[in-house]
Design a protein around this nucleic acid. Structure first.
Lengths: 260, 260
DNA sequence: GACTATTTGTACGTATGTATC
DNA sequence: GGATACATACGTACAAATAGT
């Protein structure tokens, strides 16, 4: 015996998944739903709230507003391609290039701060004291819409040795390459991926509609002796990004491309 | 000019993030909140609904129920360790072993079906027609709680060549190893990771509380000539799993371990 | 098992505010 | 300003779930 509002939500959900309502289409208005189901407005709103929190629709108020079926545009982040130190690819450049290849217009803002290391990240950087760290932040837009934030933390000792890290502007050749040239190569990484609902702060910065989870991505870079020298955290809009790794024998993928 | 229920939610959220309310603690009951904020019950419920959808609390009805601050237990899935074909690790075994090393009790149910390939996956398997495929499904539990589902799809032509794939029971040595022995090695993979809110079906199967996103993981395995021979899809509970890759020179991590 | 107390869930109604065209 | 659509907030009543007597 499911409740009324759940049944209504189920019907609307069905129409969306069947394709009777396609992305961009509008659901009936609240009064129309009240009418056609003969329920109170509150009940309609309960049903609609479910769909919102499932990420199926967004609601825009106002005269020509309404409840609109969401679309899912996916941008691909090739984690195993960025930052080939021995190759010639710089981090941010790689990202920008990749987005362009996917036919979109990437932009980014950038700034640098010095702040205490968040506890979760301190562990990854092997700094016992909650010592300060240099952070290079950027907020990335695709077609003018914010889609991810990226923060990279370097331990203070490293910033002392490589003062260029403190440059308040973007580093054209890429920090990974810069560090390699200064004698701090990163021959190995550890990536972690997790998902969760966004904090209110993330909702604001990424302009997230309700019902949009985020994907949090950490990359820790290590020196040859195993010491970690930086942690990068990217927060992706979940409805607009996916992360891809290609692993194993690279010639296989060359065979694959030539076959196409 | 934020609304009343958002202010209330913000205060409660603060108490959680500050640690005044710790995981397992109960929020005040609805009547208590109605009282202390002097608002209607509906307003309290709106505030609470926000926290639920942010994944911060779960609500249990009944006499000794209440609104409880959620905890986040994280299980690690080492994507770059499973399925070392040349090594000695079988897929499911690897998973089970890993969970055990993390001090928990893994179990799994298993079944096999033959069904049409979902459209998104058909593309990855390079099968133009929506031809049937063999699916090996399993639902995985940790400490008795469902934490992920795994479905692996094989194209029909492969199942014809390797009839063992149709075995309705678990394959002890692991299908990857089995296939390699039969002349179908997988020297390369492509992994895709994305996040979204769960479908009602996933909510049921994984017993997900509201506000829990899921992480969807695809691994496509390729033959040396580039032909794909299987797609595995894992759906992880987002609040209980993270995926880890170690990339690059493996000796670096050996240095790291010896240093500890 | 019956009964009760507590806590959340569902559903109704009404009124007014805010956003957008 | 006026019209339309959703947002917030109040109130009420009864149902369902759970735990203890």
């Amino acid at each position: 015996m499911t409740s009324l509002y759940r049944k209504i939500a189920a019907e609307l959900r069905d129409q969306i998944s069947r394709g009777a309502l396609r992305p961009g289409d509008k659901l009936p208005t609240e009064p129309q739903l009240v009418d056609s189901y003969s329920v109170s407005r509150n009940t309609v709103r309960l049903a609609v709230a479910l769909l919102v929190n499932e990420g199926l629709i967004v609601i825009v108020p106002g005269r020509n507003g309404g409840m609109v079926v969401r679309d899912r545009v996916t941008l691909t982040y090739h984690a195993s391609r960025v930052e080939q130190v021995d190759g010639l690819v710089a981090e941010t450049d790689a990202y920008m290039t990749e987005v362009q290849q996917q036919g979109r217009e990437p932009t980014q803002t950038f700034h640098l701060t010095i702040e205490a290391l968040p506890a979760e990240l301190a562990e990854r950087l092997d700094v016992a004291d909650a010592s300060s760290a240099v952070v290079r932040c950027c907020l990335r837009f695709v077609n003018g819409e914010p889609t991810s934030t990226q923060d990279t933390y370097y331990p203070k000792w490293l910033a002392d040795e490589v003062p260029e890290l403190m440059s308040p502007s973007d580093i054209p050749q890429g920090t990974t390459r810069l560090l390699a040239e200064k004698g701090y190569p990163q021959p190995a990484y550890r990536d972690e991926l997790l998902t969760r609902m966004p904090t209110p702060d993330e909702v604001r910065r990424l302009e997230l509609p309700a019902g949009t989870p985020i994907m949090e991505y950490h990359r820790t870079g290590y020196l040859p002796d195993g010491r970690p020298i930086r942690v990068t955290r990217i927060v992706f809009r979940g409805d607009a990004n996916r992360v891809v790794y290609t692993l194993g024998d690279p010639t296989v993928f060359m065979n694959r491309e030539s076959a196409e």
